[in-house]
């Protein structure tokens, strides 16, 4: 994965609120070349991690990373984003819920990789797309989320985020709201809840 460096800050992808980032490779800034360390985090990520509140009374706007899970577009605060990596070999961990794909070692840290499609009861189709693992920082430490495709970074004002509709059925407690724009609907995840792993199955098949 090549790296684009924003030499001219004025032409950065976040210049205007509705601007889509540079068309060819909008997220290059977040993609990580595993061979090249130390250059992977945009300055905006160094200040704060964790899923912060997104509404600001003063009309401040926040950046969100959006990605596809099955056919739905989801968004997470970019402050929680650590990096995006191309899939690594995942080691299965027994006795964990089905949405835990396993663990990977990324620069010396072992992190779980979750398939939120399963957790959110979405159809798990063929992942013919060039999938990615989005590494997010949360209250419980870093975790990877397997996504079908990373879409873009959007800048949204707090007033444009609606509360999650109760009609969505199961799993609304994993959501923080909905962003509507350009006829699309982005579902904002509550990271701490969505990336939590329920108590492990202590005895999957222990007593045979």
């Amino acid at each position: 994965m090549g790296k684009l460096k924003h030499t001219d800050p004025k032409s950065g992808p976040f210049e205007e609120e509705t601007e889509r980032a540079e068309p060819r490779d909008p997220l290059s800034e977040f993609f990580v070349d595993l061979e090249e360390e130390g250059t992977l985090r945009p300055a905006s990520l160094l200040s704060a991690a964790g899923s912060e509140a997104f509404s600001h009374a003063d009309g401040r706007r926040d950046d969100y990373l959006s990605f596809m899970l099955a056919d739905e577009e989801y968004a997470v605060p970019i402050t929680a984003l650590r990096e995006v990596v191309t899939p690594l070999p995942i080691t299965e961990v027994p006795r964990t819920p089905s949405y835990v794909l396993g663990v990977v070692t990324l620069r010396g840290t072992v992190l779980p990789v979750l398939d939120l499609r399963i957790k959110l009861n979405l159809p798990v189709g063929e992942s013919g797309q060039p999938s990615r693992i989005v590494v997010l920082e949360t209250r419980d430490g870093p975790a990877g989320v397997w996504v079908d495709r990373v879409v873009e970074v959007v800048r949204v004002g707090g007033e444009n985020i609606e509360p999650p509709p109760s009609v969505l059925g199961g799993g609304t407690d994993l959501l923080r709201g909905i962003i509507r724009r350009d006829g699309r609907m982005l579902i904002v995840l509550d990271l701490d809840a969505a990336l939590w792993v329920e108590g492990q199955i202590s005895d999957s098949e222990g007593v045979s």
Partner: peptide, 23 residues
């Protein structure tokens, strides 16, 4: 450690990298 999410999986003490990029 497998971290806070998976730290309590019974029978697994943790993970390690054997140098072949596999955990």
């Amino acid at each position: 450690s497998l971290g806070r999410r998976l730290g309590n999986v019974r029978g697994i003490a943790g993970a390690t990298d054997l140098g072949d990029n596999r955990t």
